[in-house]
Design a protein around this nucleic acid. Structure first.
Lengths: 213, 213
DNA sequence: TAGATTGTTAATCGATTAACAATC
DNA sequence: TAGATTGTTAATCGATTAACAATC
């Protein structure tokens, strides 16, 4: 007999909408709102109500006809689904402007992201303390990853240094890379790569601005 | 007779791939490579060659059978298409960690983005100079936008302050908003909104990490 | 009950990919 | 010429949306 994957295969589009719902639902929760319908949520974001229901379905929360969904239930389920109720340790490499901004971003705690250490190849940056984390020399990265079994690597280095750092991370056993460098990365299958490149987002903005009549 | 829109209606997916090609093409150009085929480009990104050709088509650059596309031609055309060969002035509101990171990001110049001024409602931040830009009080934002006719507003404030700041921007005539705040924004039709929210990207990362077997 | 909303199936829409004649 | 690559048309795939019976 053939075993069929039980993976739900949730689309990237759905994954990116879940945090939007979550932020709104948390605001509703704070206001004491108990239930919300897919119609209401859809109106808030200019989405289609069916799409909202399909999205929420992946979390396992079920609604009630005529009433909608329990706000508190959705908040817990979405956070669970995204993994935001557990802690994910990460190392950050590249203590430039973007690196510092991420190190200083307090809200990551809410999303279960915990940056445990920062690395830089510039000896002048090493040793200083940035937002309560000591900056370590890049040479110590592999040993650190292996010892602490960190799974996430955050990449905030200049483009040309991106691939070598990634190779270090991969060799040391990193499972997921959050990339802020504007460089195409070579990653083996099985490792998760999520790009958070500003230039892609900027491209959408400036091209719309350029081609609007 | 009916006038049909001549807008090419380029998909968001294509727009987001163009900067990827561009970065690679600029590297090839620096190496002195003259031509590149869609097959080669596709291999580099694990894309489909037909998709690459469709993407490049929107720039107007035409390839040669058996040879491929001129690297230098593509670089100019893609940059033109994205509007990166002209200058887009922008104001930034919210001089926190992310705001400072963007103010310090030198490469924006390459993408035609010019942050002309920064604003903050915190009087303690006002007056200081951050990366050569003076930080102005939020109260001066509307007047500034009207006087300088800036088109882009960059939003790096905390979630709860996002909508009020957006309303100020809109009333003063801002045409496009680059949003880094984790808040759902209400924007009238015709104004361009591009979200660069870290939480959406993080959600994709942590959920994959959580659900992988 | 009456009717708004759910979960689900089917239709639509748009983006990706395959196929292939034309070209250099 | 021979054959790799182009531009383009048609097929496929997946995501969005419409329709609707079941439900509370």
């Amino acid at each position: 007999m053939l075993f069929v994957s039980k993976d739900p295969v949730v689309s990237r589009s759905t994954l990116k909408r879940l945090p939007l719902y979550l932020h709104l639902l948390e605001a509703l929760l704070a206001q004491g709102v108990e239930c919300v319908s897919s119609t209401q949520l859809a109106r808030e974001f200019n989405f289609n109500p069916t799409q909202v229901r399909k999205d929420l379905e992946v979390t396992g929360e079920v609604g009630k006809a005529r009433v909608g969904f329990r706000v508190a239930g959705l908040v817990v389920r979405i956070r669970d689904f995204l993994g935001w109720n557990s802690t994910h340790d990460a190392v950050l490499v590249g203590v430039g402007n973007m690196g510092k901004a991420l190190l200083g971003y307090k809200d990551f705690e809410k999303y279960g992201l915990n940056i445990v250490a920062a690395f830089d190849k510039d000896v002048r940056k090493v040793g200083a303390t940035t937002f309560d984390r000591e900056v370590l020399p890049l040479a110590q990265l592999p040993k650190f990853i292996k010892r602490t079994k960190v799974h996430i690597g955050i990449l905030t280095v200049p483009a040309r240094e991106a691939q070598p750092v990634v190779d270090l991370m991969l060799a040391a056993g990193i499972k997921a890379i959050w990339n802020f460098a504007p460089a195409p990365l070579r990653i083996p299958a099985g490792v998760i790569l999520e790009n958070a490149r500003l230039t892609q987002s900027l491209a959408v903005l400036t091209s719309h601005l350029t081609h609007q009549n």
